[in-house]
Design a protein around this nucleic acid. Structure first.
Lengths: 190, 190
DNA sequence: CGTCTATTTGAATGTACTCAAAAGCGGTGG
DNA sequence: CCACCGCTTTTGAGTACATTCAAATAGACG
Protein backbone atom coordinates (compact mmCIF):
# COMPACT_ATOMS: atom_id res chain seq x y z
CA UNK A 1 0.00 0.00 0.00
CA UNK A 2 1.22 3.44 -0.85
CA UNK A 3 0.63 4.78 2.65
CA UNK A 4 3.02 2.26 4.19
CA UNK A 5 5.92 4.70 4.10
CA UNK A 6 3.97 6.97 6.41
CA UNK A 7 2.96 4.15 8.73
CA UNK A 8 6.58 3.08 9.05
CA UNK A 9 7.58 6.62 9.84
CA UNK A 10 4.95 6.88 12.56
CA UNK A 11 5.75 3.49 14.04
CA UNK A 12 9.33 4.53 14.63
CA UNK A 13 7.89 6.65 17.45
CA UNK A 14 4.52 5.25 18.54
CA UNK A 15 2.89 1.83 18.18
CA UNK A 16 -0.50 1.53 16.51
CA UNK A 17 -2.93 -1.39 16.51
CA UNK A 18 -4.91 -2.41 13.44
CA UNK A 19 -7.93 -0.36 14.32
CA UNK A 20 -5.90 2.77 14.91
CA UNK A 21 -4.13 2.35 11.59
CA UNK A 22 -7.41 2.05 9.80
CA UNK A 23 -8.75 5.11 11.51
CA UNK A 24 -5.66 7.05 10.50
CA UNK A 25 -5.90 5.86 6.90
CA UNK A 26 -9.51 6.97 6.71
CA UNK A 27 -8.34 10.53 7.33
CA UNK A 28 -5.69 10.66 4.62
CA UNK A 29 -5.83 11.59 1.00
CA UNK A 30 -3.28 11.58 -1.77
CA UNK A 31 -2.19 14.35 -4.11
CA UNK A 32 0.00 14.35 -7.19
CA UNK A 33 1.87 17.40 -8.34
CA UNK A 34 3.76 18.02 -11.51
CA UNK A 35 7.05 19.87 -11.50
CA UNK A 36 6.56 23.60 -10.73
CA UNK A 37 3.04 23.06 -9.47
CA UNK A 38 2.23 24.77 -6.18
CA UNK A 39 1.00 23.03 -3.07
CA UNK A 40 0.61 26.31 -1.21
CA UNK A 41 0.55 29.87 -2.55
CA UNK A 42 1.68 32.91 -0.57
CA UNK A 43 -1.31 34.66 0.97
CA UNK A 44 -3.48 31.55 1.22
CA UNK A 45 -4.12 29.81 4.53
CA UNK A 46 -2.22 26.56 4.92
CA UNK A 47 -4.80 24.15 6.26
CA UNK A 48 -2.97 20.84 5.85
CA UNK A 49 0.23 19.06 6.61
CA UNK A 50 1.74 17.12 3.75
CA UNK A 51 3.92 14.03 3.86
CA UNK A 52 6.15 13.47 0.84
CA UNK A 53 5.96 9.97 -0.64
CA UNK A 54 7.99 10.66 -3.74
CA UNK A 55 9.70 13.66 -5.27
CA UNK A 56 10.83 16.92 -3.80
CA UNK A 57 9.44 20.31 -2.82
CA UNK A 58 10.75 23.68 -1.80
CA UNK A 59 9.27 26.12 0.71
CA UNK A 60 10.17 29.70 -0.20
CA UNK A 61 9.38 33.29 0.74
CA UNK A 62 9.94 36.75 -0.69
CA UNK A 63 12.60 38.80 1.09
CA UNK A 64 12.63 42.52 1.80
CA UNK A 65 14.14 43.22 -1.63
CA UNK A 66 11.34 41.33 -3.33
CA UNK A 67 13.49 38.34 -4.24
CA UNK A 68 12.46 34.74 -3.80
CA UNK A 69 14.46 32.83 -1.21
CA UNK A 70 14.34 29.09 -0.63
CA UNK A 71 13.70 28.45 3.06
CA UNK A 72 13.85 24.66 2.96
CA UNK A 73 13.75 21.65 0.70
CA UNK A 74 11.56 18.69 1.53
CA UNK A 75 12.19 15.15 0.29
CA UNK A 76 10.68 11.69 0.64
CA UNK A 77 9.61 10.65 4.12
CA UNK A 78 9.25 14.18 5.51
CA UNK A 79 6.37 16.43 6.49
CA UNK A 80 5.95 19.91 5.15
CA UNK A 81 3.59 22.82 5.81
CA UNK A 82 3.63 26.43 6.84
CA UNK A 83 3.04 25.77 10.49
CA UNK A 84 2.51 29.42 11.39
CA UNK A 85 -0.32 29.72 8.92
CA UNK A 86 -1.51 26.23 9.82
CA UNK A 87 -1.85 26.88 13.56
CA UNK A 88 -2.91 30.49 13.49
CA UNK A 89 -5.06 30.40 10.38
CA UNK A 90 -3.15 33.44 9.11
CA UNK A 91 -2.23 34.06 5.44
CA UNK A 92 0.91 32.19 4.53
CA UNK A 93 4.13 34.07 3.87
CA UNK A 94 5.61 30.99 2.25
CA UNK A 95 4.78 29.17 -0.89
CA UNK A 96 5.42 25.49 -1.46
CA UNK A 97 6.23 24.24 -4.93
CA UNK A 98 7.23 20.94 -6.48
CA UNK A 99 10.78 20.79 -7.82
CA UNK A 100 10.13 17.39 -9.38
CA UNK A 101 6.93 15.48 -10.09
CA UNK A 102 5.82 14.73 -6.56
CA UNK A 103 3.33 12.67 -4.58
CA UNK A 104 2.19 13.68 -1.14
CA UNK A 105 -0.26 12.52 1.49
CA UNK A 106 -2.52 15.27 2.73
CA UNK A 107 -3.65 15.47 6.34
CA UNK A 108 -6.11 18.29 6.88
CA UNK A 109 -6.26 20.36 10.00
CA UNK A 110 -9.68 19.07 10.96
CA UNK A 111 -8.45 15.52 10.51
CA UNK A 112 -5.49 16.16 12.76
CA UNK A 113 -7.81 17.41 15.45
CA UNK A 114 -10.00 14.34 15.08
CA UNK A 115 -6.92 12.19 15.19
CA UNK A 116 -5.54 13.83 18.32
CA UNK A 117 -8.79 13.61 20.23
CA UNK A 118 -9.40 9.98 19.24
CA UNK A 119 -5.85 8.67 19.55
CA UNK A 120 -4.04 10.90 22.05
CA UNK A 121 -0.69 9.24 21.53
CA UNK A 122 -0.48 11.13 18.26
CA UNK A 123 0.28 14.12 20.46
CA UNK A 124 3.58 12.43 21.14
CA UNK A 125 4.25 11.78 17.47
CA UNK A 126 3.66 15.39 16.51
CA UNK A 127 5.60 16.61 19.51
CA UNK A 128 8.59 14.59 18.33
CA UNK A 129 8.25 16.04 14.84
CA UNK A 130 8.18 19.57 16.26
CA UNK A 131 11.25 18.88 18.34
CA UNK A 132 13.14 17.48 15.37
CA UNK A 133 12.29 20.62 13.46
CA UNK A 134 13.59 22.78 16.29
CA UNK A 135 16.89 20.83 16.38
CA UNK A 136 17.37 21.23 12.64
CA UNK A 137 16.62 24.92 12.82
CA UNK A 138 18.99 25.47 15.73
CA UNK A 139 21.71 23.87 13.68
CA UNK A 140 20.88 26.04 10.70
CA UNK A 141 21.00 29.22 12.80
CA UNK A 142 24.40 28.28 14.16
CA UNK A 143 25.70 27.62 10.66
CA UNK A 144 24.22 30.77 9.19
CA UNK A 145 25.70 32.97 11.91
CA UNK A 146 29.11 31.48 12.38
CA UNK A 147 30.18 29.54 9.29
CA UNK A 148 31.50 30.75 5.95
CA UNK A 149 29.63 30.06 2.72
CA UNK A 150 32.10 27.29 1.89
CA UNK A 151 31.50 25.55 5.22
CA UNK A 152 27.75 25.87 4.82
CA UNK A 153 27.96 24.34 1.35
CA UNK A 154 30.15 21.45 2.54
CA UNK A 155 27.75 20.76 5.40
CA UNK A 156 24.87 20.82 2.96
CA UNK A 157 26.56 18.19 0.79
CA UNK A 158 27.17 16.04 3.88
CA UNK A 159 23.56 16.39 5.01
CA UNK A 160 22.10 15.64 1.61
CA UNK A 161 24.60 13.46 -0.26
CA UNK A 162 23.79 13.12 -3.96
CA UNK A 163 20.96 15.56 -3.55
CA UNK A 164 22.71 18.34 -5.40
CA UNK A 165 22.01 16.38 -8.54
CA UNK A 166 18.29 16.73 -8.04
CA UNK A 167 18.34 20.46 -7.32
CA UNK A 168 19.16 23.47 -9.50
CA UNK A 169 22.36 25.05 -8.19
CA UNK A 170 20.64 28.39 -8.14
CA UNK A 171 18.19 27.15 -5.56
CA UNK A 172 20.89 25.64 -3.40
CA UNK A 173 22.59 29.03 -3.41
CA UNK A 174 19.35 30.65 -2.36
CA UNK A 175 18.91 28.11 0.46
CA UNK A 176 22.45 28.75 1.67
CA UNK A 177 22.01 32.52 1.49
CA UNK A 178 24.69 33.20 -1.14
CA UNK A 179 24.59 34.53 -4.69
CA UNK A 180 24.50 31.91 -7.47
CA UNK A 181 27.74 33.33 -8.92
CA UNK A 182 29.57 32.89 -5.67
CA UNK A 183 28.38 29.32 -5.17
CA UNK A 184 29.51 28.55 -8.68
CA UNK A 185 32.98 29.89 -7.98
CA UNK A 186 33.19 27.93 -4.70
CA UNK A 187 32.39 24.70 -6.53
CA UNK A 188 34.96 25.29 -9.24
CA UNK A 189 37.75 26.10 -6.84
CA UNK A 190 37.82 22.60 -5.35
CA UNK B 1 2.46 34.64 45.11
CA UNK B 2 5.68 34.49 43.16
CA UNK B 3 4.41 31.80 40.81
CA UNK B 4 1.58 33.95 39.58
CA UNK B 5 3.54 35.16 36.58
CA UNK B 6 3.77 31.60 35.36
CA UNK B 7 0.09 30.92 35.99
CA UNK B 8 -0.84 33.99 34.01
CA UNK B 9 1.38 32.87 31.18
CA UNK B 10 -0.24 29.43 31.13
CA UNK B 11 -3.77 30.80 31.35
CA UNK B 12 -3.26 32.79 28.20
CA UNK B 13 -3.51 29.45 26.42
CA UNK B 14 -5.36 26.94 28.62
CA UNK B 15 -7.78 27.34 31.51
CA UNK B 16 -7.03 25.67 34.84
CA UNK B 17 -9.30 25.07 37.82
CA UNK B 18 -8.16 25.48 41.41
CA UNK B 19 -7.23 21.85 41.84
CA UNK B 20 -5.18 21.77 38.68
CA UNK B 21 -3.32 24.89 39.71
CA UNK B 22 -2.46 23.39 43.04
CA UNK B 23 -1.26 20.23 41.40
CA UNK B 24 0.95 22.23 39.10
CA UNK B 25 2.36 24.30 41.95
CA UNK B 26 3.24 21.15 43.87
CA UNK B 27 5.59 20.20 41.02
CA UNK B 28 7.50 23.48 40.87
CA UNK B 29 10.54 24.72 42.70
CA UNK B 30 12.37 28.00 42.69
CA UNK B 31 16.04 28.77 42.06
CA UNK B 32 18.06 31.92 42.49
CA UNK B 33 21.19 32.60 40.49
CA UNK B 34 23.74 35.30 40.87
CA UNK B 35 25.25 37.03 37.85
CA UNK B 36 27.59 34.69 35.93
CA UNK B 37 26.27 31.62 37.69
CA UNK B 38 25.44 28.68 35.42
CA UNK B 39 22.07 27.00 35.20
CA UNK B 40 23.36 24.40 32.76
CA UNK B 41 26.94 23.47 31.90
CA UNK B 42 28.01 22.09 28.52
CA UNK B 43 28.30 18.31 28.67
CA UNK B 44 25.71 17.85 31.42
CA UNK B 45 22.23 16.53 30.72
CA UNK B 46 19.55 19.18 30.82
CA UNK B 47 16.76 17.60 32.83
CA UNK B 48 14.56 20.62 33.49
CA UNK B 49 12.77 23.46 31.85
CA UNK B 50 13.18 26.83 33.53
CA UNK B 51 10.79 29.75 33.53
CA UNK B 52 12.37 33.15 34.18
CA UNK B 53 10.65 35.23 36.89
CA UNK B 54 13.22 37.97 37.08
CA UNK B 55 16.53 38.72 35.45
CA UNK B 56 18.11 37.50 32.27
CA UNK B 57 20.03 34.49 30.96
CA UNK B 58 21.97 33.56 27.86
CA UNK B 59 22.20 30.19 26.15
CA UNK B 60 25.54 29.78 24.37
CA UNK B 61 27.66 27.18 22.59
CA UNK B 62 31.22 26.82 21.42
CA UNK B 63 31.72 27.14 17.68
CA UNK B 64 34.12 25.23 15.43
CA UNK B 65 36.89 27.73 16.15
CA UNK B 66 36.46 27.21 19.89
CA UNK B 67 34.82 30.56 20.48
CA UNK B 68 31.75 31.12 22.63
CA UNK B 69 28.67 32.21 20.72
CA UNK B 70 25.42 33.44 22.24
CA UNK B 71 22.55 31.46 20.78
CA UNK B 72 19.74 33.24 22.56
CA UNK B 73 18.87 35.53 25.42
CA UNK B 74 16.03 34.73 27.77
CA UNK B 75 14.16 37.33 29.81
CA UNK B 76 11.24 37.48 32.24
CA UNK B 77 8.19 35.44 31.36
CA UNK B 78 9.98 32.99 29.05
CA UNK B 79 10.99 29.33 29.23
CA UNK B 80 14.51 28.16 28.63
CA UNK B 81 16.25 24.80 28.36
CA UNK B 82 18.36 22.78 25.97
CA UNK B 83 15.49 20.87 24.50
CA UNK B 84 17.67 18.47 22.53
CA UNK B 85 19.43 17.35 25.70
CA UNK B 86 16.15 17.50 27.60
CA UNK B 87 14.25 15.18 25.29
CA UNK B 88 17.04 12.85 24.26
CA UNK B 89 18.91 12.75 27.55
CA UNK B 90 22.08 13.51 25.61
CA UNK B 91 24.93 15.72 26.90
CA UNK B 92 24.17 19.35 26.32
CA UNK B 93 26.11 21.33 23.74
CA UNK B 94 24.82 24.56 25.23
CA UNK B 95 25.43 26.22 28.51
CA UNK B 96 23.01 28.56 30.21
CA UNK B 97 24.30 31.37 32.35
CA UNK B 98 22.82 34.30 34.25
CA UNK B 99 23.64 37.73 32.81
CA UNK B 100 22.03 39.43 35.81
CA UNK B 101 20.97 38.14 39.22
CA UNK B 102 18.10 35.92 38.20
CA UNK B 103 15.19 33.95 39.61
CA UNK B 104 13.71 30.98 37.80
CA UNK B 105 11.07 28.35 38.36
CA UNK B 106 12.32 24.84 37.75
CA UNK B 107 10.12 22.16 36.23
CA UNK B 108 11.86 18.79 36.13
CA UNK B 109 11.43 16.31 33.37
CA UNK B 110 9.75 13.77 35.63
CA UNK B 111 7.35 16.46 36.80
CA UNK B 112 6.46 17.38 33.25
CA UNK B 113 5.65 13.77 32.54
CA UNK B 114 3.48 13.57 35.64
CA UNK B 115 1.84 16.81 34.62
CA UNK B 116 1.11 15.67 31.08
CA UNK B 117 -0.37 12.36 32.14
CA UNK B 118 -2.52 13.92 34.86
CA UNK B 119 -3.64 17.05 33.04
CA UNK B 120 -3.50 16.27 29.32
CA UNK B 121 -4.35 19.80 28.26
CA UNK B 122 -0.81 20.74 29.17
CA UNK B 123 0.09 18.98 25.93
CA UNK B 124 -1.57 21.90 24.23
CA UNK B 125 0.34 24.44 26.29
CA UNK B 126 3.70 22.91 25.49
CA UNK B 127 2.73 22.44 21.88
CA UNK B 128 2.02 26.14 21.63
CA UNK B 129 5.37 26.94 23.22
CA UNK B 130 7.15 24.69 20.72
CA UNK B 131 5.36 26.33 17.85
CA UNK B 132 6.25 29.79 19.07
CA UNK B 133 9.86 28.72 19.23
CA UNK B 134 9.70 27.44 15.67
CA UNK B 135 8.25 30.75 14.43
CA UNK B 136 10.95 32.75 16.18
CA UNK B 137 13.66 30.53 14.78
CA UNK B 138 12.27 30.69 11.25
CA UNK B 139 12.41 34.45 11.47
CA UNK B 140 15.97 34.30 12.75
CA UNK B 141 17.05 32.03 9.89
CA UNK B 142 15.55 34.39 7.35
CA UNK B 143 17.31 37.35 8.91
CA UNK B 144 20.64 35.57 9.22
CA UNK B 145 20.60 34.46 5.60
CA UNK B 146 19.23 37.48 3.84
CA UNK B 147 19.77 40.61 5.93
CA UNK B 148 22.87 42.69 6.50
CA UNK B 149 24.38 43.11 9.96
CA UNK B 150 22.86 46.57 10.19
CA UNK B 151 19.37 45.29 9.43
CA UNK B 152 19.79 42.47 11.93
CA UNK B 153 20.84 44.93 14.61
CA UNK B 154 17.94 47.29 13.89
CA UNK B 155 15.51 44.38 14.05
CA UNK B 156 17.06 43.32 17.33
CA UNK B 157 16.47 46.77 18.78
CA UNK B 158 12.87 46.68 17.61
CA UNK B 159 12.31 43.22 19.07
CA UNK B 160 13.90 44.06 22.41
CA UNK B 161 13.51 47.80 22.96
CA UNK B 162 15.59 49.12 25.85
CA UNK B 163 17.14 45.72 26.26
CA UNK B 164 20.51 46.75 24.87
CA UNK B 165 21.01 48.57 28.14
CA UNK B 166 20.87 45.30 30.08
CA UNK B 167 23.25 43.39 27.82
CA UNK B 168 26.95 43.78 27.14
CA UNK B 169 27.41 44.93 23.56
CA UNK B 170 29.89 42.16 23.01
CA UNK B 171 27.21 39.57 23.64
CA UNK B 172 24.72 41.26 21.36
CA UNK B 173 27.37 41.11 18.63
CA UNK B 174 27.85 37.43 19.30
CA UNK B 175 24.09 36.84 19.14
CA UNK B 176 23.89 38.68 15.83
CA UNK B 177 26.86 36.81 14.38
CA UNK B 178 29.13 39.83 13.91
CA UNK B 179 32.44 40.88 15.46
CA UNK B 180 32.22 43.27 18.43
CA UNK B 181 34.34 45.82 16.55
CA UNK B 182 31.95 45.85 13.65
CA UNK B 183 28.87 46.23 15.82
CA UNK B 184 30.56 49.12 17.56
CA UNK B 185 31.21 50.86 14.25
CA UNK B 186 27.62 50.27 13.10
CA UNK B 187 26.31 51.93 16.25
CA UNK B 188 28.55 54.95 15.94
CA UNK B 189 27.72 55.58 12.33
CA UNK B 190 24.08 56.44 13.07
C1' DC C 1 16.93 24.11 -34.41
C1' DG C 2 15.94 28.14 -31.70
C1' DT C 3 14.70 30.13 -27.38
C1' DC C 4 14.97 30.56 -22.62
C1' DT C 5 17.15 29.81 -18.46
C1' DA C 6 21.13 28.26 -15.70
C1' DT C 7 25.95 28.36 -15.03
C1' DT C 8 30.54 30.17 -15.50
C1' DT C 9 34.05 33.74 -15.55
C1' DG C 10 36.03 38.13 -14.48
C1' DA C 11 36.31 43.00 -12.88
C1' DA C 12 34.93 46.38 -9.69
C1' DT C 13 32.82 47.21 -5.32
C1' DG C 14 31.08 46.70 -0.67
C1' DT C 15 30.53 44.39 3.59
C1' DA C 16 32.52 42.48 7.44
C1' DC C 17 36.78 40.50 9.77
C1' DT C 18 41.40 40.60 12.02
C1' DC C 19 44.81 42.78 14.43
C1' DA C 20 46.62 46.39 17.13
C1' DA C 21 46.38 50.21 20.04
C1' DA C 22 43.94 53.61 22.77
C1' DA C 23 40.24 55.02 25.66
C1' DG C 24 36.51 54.02 28.91
C1' DC C 25 34.38 51.68 32.83
C1' DG C 26 33.55 48.81 36.81
C1' DG C 27 34.90 46.42 40.59
C1' DT C 28 38.26 45.38 44.28
C1' DG C 29 41.57 46.08 47.80
C1' DG C 30 44.26 49.03 50.38
C1' DC D 1 37.81 57.21 48.55
C1' DC D 2 41.25 56.50 45.39
C1' DA D 3 44.32 53.73 42.50
C1' DC D 4 44.88 49.95 39.93
C1' DC D 5 43.62 45.93 37.23
C1' DG D 6 41.03 43.59 33.88
C1' DC D 7 37.64 43.73 30.59
C1' DT D 8 34.74 46.17 27.13
C1' DT D 9 34.32 49.49 23.67
C1' DT D 10 36.19 52.49 20.18
C1' DT D 11 39.04 53.66 16.21
C1' DG D 12 41.76 52.77 12.22
C1' DA D 13 44.48 50.17 8.73
C1' DG D 14 44.84 46.27 6.00
C1' DT D 15 42.66 42.10 4.22
C1' DA D 16 39.32 38.51 3.07
C1' DC D 17 34.88 37.13 1.89
C1' DA D 18 30.98 37.80 -0.82
C1' DT D 19 28.08 40.80 -3.99
C1' DT D 20 26.82 43.12 -8.28
C1' DC D 21 27.03 43.65 -13.01
C1' DA D 22 28.13 42.22 -17.54
C1' DA D 23 29.17 39.02 -20.96
C1' DA D 24 30.11 34.43 -22.61
C1' DT D 25 28.99 29.57 -22.55
C1' DA D 26 26.31 25.58 -21.66
C1' DG D 27 21.99 22.97 -21.10
C1' DA D 28 17.07 21.99 -21.27
C1' DC D 29 12.93 21.80 -23.60
C1' DG D 30 9.48 22.46 -26.97
Amino acid sequence: MTFNILLENIEKYIKLDKEEKEFLLSLLSQKKLRKKQQLLTTGMVCSSKYFVLKGCLKRSYTNTEGKERVFEFCFENQWISDIQSFWKGSPSIFNIEAIEDTEVIELKRASIETLLSNIPKFEKYFRILSNEQIFKQERRIKQALSCSAKERYDDFLMDYPKIELRLPQRQIASYLGVSPEFLSSLRNKK
